[in-house]
């Protein structure tokens, strides 16, 4: 009898709104479910050392892969790949344009400040920032060894040489902050790291990612955003922009560039993407989103059932914050990492 691993979502993302033909409404359960499922998959390493395979059969594939990725990237943003050294962080700040708005942590509180440049004080290099003191602005020097107290605001952290370029990431820090843990915001804004790849029809995935269809509420305001604000899709960014997600075409049977690190999560969006997939995929987590109306749905579902019989080392239970829609079927198992 195979053992059963419980995978829990440890981070519900509350208060999502969606654009219902011009009206902003509370997101329906299915949206919350897919985001939450992504969070659960991203936290699976806390529950098992083995690889995880999850297949989802939904009444439509629309947005499902991107929403799962949203949950996963959001949850994985808590995992800082390597805590930046003060030196690295100092260098990042040094590269900023003067006047860039930053945040400074003091006594566990955040204060806005503006970057004024780098100065040497008593033989120590310091970051010079302007802070508000009542109605006045006062300059402060923050030594290099304490520069981790300065937080780059993600999208405000635009390097000087890129300011004039048209960017796909809009400045939506409030929206982003809803999904990304504040402590990790700097890394999220600056670090190039492939957390997730989605294999499927790129043109459709891109339109979904660019559509301003989600919003979050904070106090009295609500902040609109796109999936790409969080997913940071490599194909929608400039070459030097920090990415987290990559879209790959199923038509070409692409995998991912050999120079990249293997991402934590691979999502196959659609039966064809899965059926054409490279069986050598060795991501810690593989998710397959199947659309029940697709022509090859039954073949893919059969193939997945066969894979379950051949490769599973154990069964899984999902404990999520949102109930799975009745129309969604899920099969999942653990398998040995290759």
């Amino acid at each position: 009898m195979a053992n059963k691993t419980t995978i829990k979502s440890d981070r519900a993302i509350p208060g999502l709104l969606f654009n219902n033909r011009g009206r902003w409404l509370e997101a329906p359960n299915w949206i919350d479910f897919f985001v939450d499922l992504g969070c659960a998959l991203a936290s699976s390493k806390e529950f098992t050392d083995e690889n995880l395979f999850v297949a989802i059969a939904a009444p439509t594939r629309a947005f499902a892969a991107n929403l799962i990725a949203l949950g996963a990237v959001s949850r994985l943003s808590q995992t800082v790949s390597a805590k930046p050294s003060p030196d690295d962080h100092f260098n990042r700040i040094s590269a900023l344009k003067k006047g860039t708005v930053l945040q400074r942590i003091e006594k566990q509180k955040r204060y806005k400040c503006a970057f004024l440049g780098i100065e040497t004080f008593q033989g120590t290099q310091c970051v010079k920032v302007a802070v508000n003191m009542g109605k006045n602005k006062v300059a402060r020097l923050i030594p290099k060894n304490r520069c981790l107290d300065i937080i780059l605001n993600g999208n405000e952290a635009i390097y000087e040489d890129k300011v004039t370029r048209k960017r796909n990431i809009l400045e939506r820090p409030e929206f982003t902050r809803h999904f990304v843990h504040p402590v990790c915001h700097t890394d999220f804004a600056l670090e190039k790291r492939l957390d997730c790849k989605i294999i499927g029809k790129q043109n459709i995935l891109k339109v979904e990612a660019k559509a301003e269809v989600l919003a979050v509420r904070s106090e009295d305001q609500f902040h609109k955003g796109t999936l790409n604000d969080i997913l940071r899709i490599r194909e929608l960014l400039s070459q030097d922009d920090p990415y987290r997600t990559q879209f790959l075409s199923s038509r070409n049977g692409d995998t991912y560039s050999a120079t990249d690190n293997s991402p934590f999560l691979t999502i196959y969006d659609g039966a064809n993407a899965y059926l054409k997939s490279d069986s050598a995929n060795n991501c810690p987590v593989t998710a397959v989103v199947l659309d029940k109306t697709e022509p090859n749905f039954e073949i893919a579902a059969q193939n997945i059932s066969d894979t379950f019989i051949k490769r599973r080392t154990g069964q899984i239970k999902l404990v999520l914050n949102y109930q799975a829609p009745q129309s969604v079927d899920i099969l999942g198992f653990t398998e040995a990492s290759k």
Binding site: L290, I304, L318, Q323, D329, L331
Partner: peptide
């Protein structure tokens, strides 16, 4: 029937009791 011949995963929420999904 369930499209996955091999069965389905148990999905529950902390707020609700264990539910074996019958698809």
């Amino acid at each position: 029937p369930n499209p996955f011949r091999a069965g389905s995963v148990e999905v529950t929420t902390p707020k609700s009791s264990w539910t074996k999904r019958d698809s």
